[in-house]
Each structure stands twice: as C-alpha cells, then as structure tokens.
Design a protein around this nucleic acid. Structure first.
Lengths: 185, 185
DNA sequence: CATCACAGGTTCGGTCACTGAACCAAGGTT
DNA sequence: AACCTTGGTTCAGTGACCGAACCTGTGATG
C-alpha cells in the first residue's frame, strides 16, 4: 500500500526554484517519460504498457497511479464486464509532446545512426520540423494530426504485439487496437 | 572507483528502439538535467554546481564524469597553479536547450503559479516563444543570445552565492563570475 | 461444476543508486 | 606549521528498482 503522501513527495528537488525542476519532480523518474510516450502513441492498457516497455509490474502500477493523480493520464472504464480500465492521456500529458519531440530529436542526432521513426504532418505528408511544425504548411501541427511511420532503423519483425501494431503508419493519440489473439474465433 | 563499463551502461532501456529512450539513458538519471541546466546558465565549477544544486558530492562527481565522457561537458583547465578545472558545456549539451526549454515551459504552465524567470531575445528584448524563437524577429534565437532575467516568483535574496549571481540579467552560456568572498582584498 | 485463461494488479527478497557525513589530498596563504 | 580552498573519495544507511511469484475478479471451456 502506497500512501498518497509518499506519492506526492516522490523525489523532489527541494532547493530549486525552477520550473524545469518542478517538471522533473513529476516526470523525471525512471520509466515515466516512456510511459507518457507510449500513451501519446495510443497505448492505453496496463498489459500493453507492460509488454511494450518491459517494465516491472510494480513500477508500472506505481507510475500509472502517479500520472493519474497528476492529471497526466485519466483512468477510464472501457468495459463493464469484466470491469476493465484504460489509461488515456490528458491535455496536460499531450502538452509534453514538444518536450518529448525535442528529446527524441536530440537522441537521434547524437546517438542514433539510422532513423527509427518519421513524424509527418498527416494533412500533407511533410516531415515535421524540429519544433513539431510543418515546414510546408508553416503551422504547428496538432498532436492528433501527426502521422507516425516506421523508419529504416526499426526492427521490421519485433516480438511483442504492441511493437508490431506500432509498425503500421498511424496518427498519434489514436487508440491502439490489438489484433485478437490467434486461436480465438 | 567507478569503472568505465559501469558508467557506459548506467540505467538502460534495453528493449526500446526509440531515440527518446536513447536520450534518457544519457540524461535521464536524477540530477543530470539540472546539471546541464546550470551549465547552460554559465555554471562551470564543481563547487558552484554543488552549492547551487544541493546535490551530494559523490553524485555530482559521477554526473560530471559521465557527462564529460558523453561529450556533453568538457573538462578544461582554467588555471595552472593551483591546478583547477572547469566543466564547460559543449555543442552537444547546448543542443539540449530546446528540450529543457520545453520541459520548463510545461512545468511553468502546469505547476508554477508565478513566473520564475524570463527568457528574452537579447537583441530586441522580446520574450521567447514556446520553441525558443523570437516572435518579433521571427527567428530561432541562438542560445548565446538568450537573455535570462529573474521573474516575480524568484526569491530576491537567496542564500547561496550562485543563486545570487543568477539574479542579475545575463546571457545564457556566459561564464559565471562569482564575486570574491568578503574578507578578501 | 471444476478448471482454465486473462487482465490487472500486490507481495517479497535481492540489488543497486542515492544520500549525507566524514575524510582526504594538493596546492596556496599567513 | 597551521590553515584554507577546491575538488574530490569513502562509507554506512536508506530507498527505489528489479524479477519472480502470487493473488483476485470475471468470463470461457469441458
């Protein structure tokens, strides 16, 4: 049992008067930003986060609860029987897209040889600029209009079903619908 | 003694094919982004990082070494006798400015009531837009032309000398020159 | 009805990173 | 000689993270 207090504290940077430090208190723990990334990609279910991230179950449960408490994810019942909840990213979480985009771009430019994913403006197909803008349309592209496509650096035949589902070009935020397991009718 | 191997591994997200995950393996550990933030603010010396961050000495030493190994900071001798080194941010580290800017903006909009710092285009005084651009000049402002000013939310009389020095409006990257200790001539 | 599968957790022991305090060392100053 | 400054290292204690096992509620299967 984790108390609300222990949750609220987390790892704080008490002496820092800085909005970066405030942000890091919320999303700076291990795995947290990857959970948010997956949520932007359309992942919503506990088990999908689990297999896609390879995160320990207890840590995932703690992160989902903390992010829900912070209003970054929203827990929502999507079926009554059996009762099942999904975690949907909120406006506050979506607002982290530019930061994730910047981080990813930095990682690619400095540490990734081959392009792993393309992010395009769904309306015109143009690849996004460094700030998430469309160079052709000269506008900031809303997150739901960002089209994610696999790049040449991505494993074309990954083991887990979530990675496979993310190989199909798709818009951000679009809920991930996993194909029904083989063996079922 | 920390081996180079243990350093290189750190906490990795082995299963993730993602440039965000690659980035987080480098800069995702506790304190790391705040060290880089301070380096962008012009902090260069071990002791200045120490007092400004309130970070344990061992952790600071490990972070400085890791960031130097990653080419984000550069260790440079600034005086021969006694031998003293400073840690200067490199191009690779400066390239993290947009990501830090985005994170800070998110933190301010969602968790900070009052503005703590202003970032302006030094040439014209206009406050930067969300992507580090100058709305007036319609250009992306180079980091060295960003002017940092204290906002109303900042403690006007902080205890540590580094925070005091950062209260003066100053450009990013400009080396922090601490006033000589009182009692010296 | 008993059993199994599945989603979504909780529990637990071991390990590893972070923490704060103490200690150390090279050089300079008084 | 004693002390100060800078930049560390060492060490014991704590807390976060880890993987594996277990649990629970519900529906499906035989």
């Amino acid at each position: 049992m984790v108390t609300v207090d222990a949750m609220a504290l987390g790892k704080d940077y008490a002496t820092q008067e800085c909005s970066i430090a405030r942000a890091l208190e919320i999303i700076g723990e291990r795995w947290t930003l990857l959970v948010i990334r997956d949520a932007l990609y359309g992942v919503r279910r506990y088990n999908d986060f689990l297999v896609h991230l390879g995160i320990p179950r207890a840590v995932l449960a703690a992160r989902l609860q903390a992010l829900t408490a912070e209003g970054i994810l929203e827990k929502r019942r999507y079926q009554q029987s059996p009762p099942r909840d999904e975690y949907v990213i909120t406006e506050r979480g979506i607002a982290l897209w530019p930061a994730l985009r910047s981080l990813g771009l930095w990682g690619r430019q400095h540490y990734t040889e081959i392009q792993l994913r393309y992010f395009r403006h769904a309306d015109c197909g143009t690849e996004l600029g460094p700030y998430g803008e469309c160079p052709a349309c000269a506008t900031v592209v809303p997150v739901e209009d960002v089209l994610m496509e696999p790049g040449p650096g991505l494993d074309p035949d990954p083991a887990d079903p979530v990675s496979r589902a993310l190989l199909v070009p798709r818009r951000l935020l679009q809920p991930l619908e996993l194909p029904v397991q083989p063996g079922r009718v």
